[in-house]
Every structure is written in structure tokens, then in C-alpha cells.
Design a protein around this nucleic acid. Structure first.
Lengths: 282, 282
DNA sequence: CGGGAACTTGATAGAGCTCAAGCGTGGTGG
DNA sequence: CCACCACGCTTGAGCTCTATCAAGTTCCCG
């Protein structure tokens, strides 16, 4: 067992209890501060002399919870690889998806205020997560002013991301929400070095819908509609974006009956043309 | 003119330009660090020995902008008195209200990431705002570890507040959104030492609707419906909450036609009772 | 190969939006 | 000081978008 190495890290028994469900098996086991800054897209203006700080990696299997609501806070987490969702659960048990953390994202910030997590993070795939004890986090900030400013920047970034989600939920049509969701995924994949044009969704229609304030049926229908007009190709989780710019600026699709009429008119015209040419042939 | 005193504060020309529109006239002109911690509800475990830091107050008149989108970031702001709204404006010019900062709230955090504000803050009433240069903010954090942790806590609090708004927008009916909005206002007024039971709205129906992802008509109708069933009393901006607990847990009003039917049935029963007793009297 | 979860598609209904008209109110200028 | 005007608010009617309910199909995992 690797429990011996795990006992080295400075973390409370609470987090060890939680983390023990996920046994490190493969992959990197520790990251230096420099690697972490790199992951978080913090410009490190410092030479690589901060190797005294090492942060443990932990593997989670799809479906496992990294932290749960109400659990005492003592860790921040950084995604090294894999895909997660972060959710709140309201008093009547309804989930609300808040985001889909992936490589380079920091999560768990909501726990700082109140000393308990107010959200829950669930692995959507096998994941490798870097543990950052909050105490260590504070220590690092104190040790390096520049880094501390960057840390505020990362938290601010998260705030801005949420504000943009509020804007989406508050004012966009279902189609526009789905379109922007795809664009935002595309950009994140591109950032991670993958194709921004084609990728696999890591979440269900249900989760997408919940995130966007829509039902899974509406998400599915919208995908189909985008597919029908050639904006994208969808096959289950596989997505190809054909016109990212159109998706980015889309506000509302022409009403389906208008589209149907247009299609019908076009088909009719073609049929007539065919018929007349057929007549001519006779 | 008070420009001489304003030139004392350490702020860039950009912020001075902006701030110069609002001339300090009355009220406190400076706050100590201890007063600020108090305002932000940070438990100050330290004696009042941090009086070397002083932060300027500035008055804004209703309608004035404290900062605008794209403006270079160098200040955080704390509301000393008055009411504001914070908004983002999307690429096609649509506003989205993100919140209504009031006494004790910190705003401008969104500017840290990216060095420019991504939101705009507008005074809804005459306001007194405390200027906190970000540089000074960082310096304070470095000077006092405890305070720094508290600062992270305030940012985290803001994040959690936004998450709760996302939950509201993502899954609640119009009625539930309005109900919770009233409850949340009530709690904030109570925190500030005012009545949580009756207060005046400081924002228009339009702004409330925008904040909640609804139209102003829906907000108005919902207020009227709550008023009709005795949950609240509304008269323009004046609000009285009669049953806060009901508002807190409300998910959906019984459909209006059902209510109408119920009302009709009740009225009928009463009428019948009256009729039969009248008959008896005959 | 079987079973369950995820996804698609259709039909229907209703919540909330849009458009429209009218009223109250507060601020402003004559 | 009054009259007017603009803005905010209310209320109504109709319509649209999206949720809901209901099958079916596909895919994946055991």
C-alpha cells in the first residue's frame, strides 16, 4: 500500500479519510510549485528555485467524489488530468451543475469562506488531482508576493467565469446557451492542446442541461437542430464544430417552422425543376 | 476644492480622473483598517494598532458610475453607505445585473484578473464608497497573515454568493426567484441593522427582472400575486414581508386558475352558507 | 447477449415573454 | 405653485419557447 507515502503529506485526518478512497496507481505522484504555476497559467517570473514545495497527486476513478458539501475545508485542488463536474445541491435535493473543471483548473475555493465546502466535486472520468493544502497555499503566498498576486488573479478569474455563466443563464435562448457552451468547451480543449474543432463530450445531456438551465431533451434537440443545419456534427458524445464563429454569435435560430417552410420551398422548387425537365424529356 | 487632499492618495491618474466626478462633500472622509474589517464582517483578532493605514471615502451621486467595463484596474471598493448595481454588458450591448452591492460589500474584484474591470458599478442612490488601492490591499495582506486569510475568505464569500445566484437562475420558477430575492434583501437589510420585515426597494422592476433572468412584467405580476395572497404588501418601491418563511421555501404558486377556482369555491361556499342561514331566518 | 443508462424524437401544455394600453408619481420648468 | 412630461409600474391578451410526458433506439458494460 502507498499509505506510508500518504502519511507524509500535511493534511488533516478528514482529508486523508476522503482521499483514501482513491489510491495512487500510476502517473506522476508529486508536482513542484513551478509545475503548478504552469498548470494554472500563472506566468512564473521566477527561476525554478521553489522545489522545496511538493504537492501530492491522487487518482480518482470516474464517479468518485473529490469533496462533498459540508465537509470541512482544508484543501484546494488542481486538475492534472481528467474531467469533473462541480455541483451545489439545494435544500430540496436538486443538483445544480456549476462547472466542469478540467486540466489546469483550481477548485474547492468555495470552501475557504465558512470553512466547509459548499459544493461537491465529482469525477466524470478517471482523474489525476493535485492536492494543495490551504495552509501550504497561504505559506506560499507569504513567501512570494508576486505569486500571491497571481493567486488573487486565479480566484478573480474564477469569479469572472461564473459571472459569464450568470449572463448566459440570465439572458440567452436555449440555442444560444448550447452554442456558447460548445464554443467554450472548444476553447478549453484548444488551450489544453487538443483539437478545438472536434472532441468528445465528457458529460451527459442531463449534466449539460442542468449546467445551462435547460432540460436534457432541449439540449438533445438543439444539438440535432445544429446538426441539421450543418453547424456541427453530433454522434452521441462525439462533436465536430463546423462553424465556430456562427456558434459564437448565434442568438436564436430561425424558427423551425420557417426553416421547414424554407426547406419545403427549396424542395418544391427542385421537384418542379426536376418535373419540368422530365416533361421536356418526354 | 478638495483636490489637494485627493492628490494625497496613492492612485493612478486613471482612477483620479474617474473619481473626480464625485466630490467629497459630507460624511466621513477616511476609514482606518479596523473600521474596514468591521464593515467587511472580518473578525479582527488584533488590537487597533493598524491605524497607519487610512482609506479615502468618496461620495457618488445616484446614477454615477464607480468604474466601467474595460477601465484599467487598480482599486477595490467597499460600500460605506448607499446602494449600487453591478452589471456586465455582452457583445451586443445587453446588460446583465450581477448583484446589488450595499453597505459592507466589496466590489471590483473582477478586475484583478486581466488588469481591467469586466463589470460596471453604478450608484442606485447617493453612495459613500471607500477606495482601497489594490497595491495597498496586497501590502496589508503581507503585513498580517490572519488578515490575508480573511481576505481570501471575503473573495470566497463572493464566489459562493454568485454560485447561489447560478442555482437560482438555473432551476427556480419565476415566483421562487422573486420570493428568494425578497428574502435575501430582507436578510441583508437585517444585517445592516434595518428592518428585515419592511423596506424600500432601491432598484427598478427592470433591474430586478434582469438580475433574476425575468422581464419586468413578470416581476411586477409576481409581486402583485404575492400581494393578493397576503404573502407581502407592495406599493411601488415599498415592501412589507408578511411571511418570510413561506417566501423562503416557496417553489411554485398554485396555478392562478386553480387559485381562482379555489377562491370561487370559497366564495360560493360562503355565499351558500349565507343563503342557507338567510333561508333559516325566513 | 441481456439490461440499463444515455440519447433521440414526438406530442402537448403551460410558464413566462412580447406587445400594448393606461395609470401613478416625482421632477422640472413655466 | 401648478401643469406637464417622462419614467416607472400595473394589467391584459396572445403567443412562443421550453418543459413535460411518452415512446422508441442505441450504446455500453457486465
Amino acid at each position: 500500500m502507498l499509505n506510508t507515502s500518504m502519511s507524509d503529506i500535511k493534511s488533516t485526518s478528514a482529508s486523508v479519510r476522503n482521499v483514501s478512497a482513491a489510491v495512487p496507481r500510476q502517473g506522476k505522484l508529486w508536482s513542484s510549485l513551478n509545475e503548478i504555476c504552469d498548470l494554472l497559467r500563472i506566468p512564473v517570473a521566477l527561476g525554478g528555485f521553489h522545489d522545496e514545495f511538493q504537492f501530492q497527486h491522487v487518482q480518482f476513478k470516474s464517479g468518485q467524489r473529490i469533496h462533498t458539501i459540508g465537509q470541512p475545508f482544508d484543501m484546494l485542488y488542481i486538475v492534472y488530468s481528467g474531467f469533473l463536474k462541480s455541483v451545489i445541491i439545494d435544500e430540496s435535493g436538486n443538483e445544480q451543475v456549476l462547472g466542469f473543471p478540467m486540466k489546469g483548473d483550481l477548485f474547492g475555493i468555495d470552501g475557504i469562506h465558512g470553512k466547509h465546502y459548499s459544493t461537491e466535486a465529482v469525477a466524470l472520468s478517471n482523474c489525476e488531482i493535485i492536492l494543495v493544502p490551504f495552509k501550504a497555499f497561504l505559506t506560499i503566498g507569504r513567501a512570494n508576493a508576486e505569486l500571491e498576486a497571481a493567486i488573487y488573479g486565479v480566484m478573480s478569474r474564477e469569479l469572472v467565469r461564473e459571472q459569464s455563466l450568470i449572463g448566459t443563464l440570465g439572458s440567452l435562448s436555449a440555442e444560444a446557451r448550447v452554442a456558447r457552451f460548445l464554443v467554450s468547451l472548444s476553447e478549453r480543449f484548444a488551450d489544453m492542446g487538443y483539437s478545438g474543432k472536434q472532441f468528445n463530450l465528457r458529460m451527459t445531456r442531463q449534466e449539460i442541461g442542468n449546467y445551462l438551465g435547460l432540460t436534457l431533451e432541449t439540449v438533445s434537440r438543439t444539438f440535432s437542430a445544429f446538426n441539421a443545419i450543418g453547424l456541427i456534427s453530433v454522434d452521441q458524445r462525439a462533436i465536430v464544430l463546423h462553424d465556430i464563429q456562427a456558434l459564437r454569435t448565434l442568438r436564436r435560430l430561425p424558427p423551425s417552422h420557417a426553416r421547414a417552410k424554407a426547406e419545403a420551398a427549396k424542395a418544391l422548387k427542385q421537384a418542379n425543376a426536376a418535373a419540368s425537365s422530365a416533361e421536356e424529356a418526354i
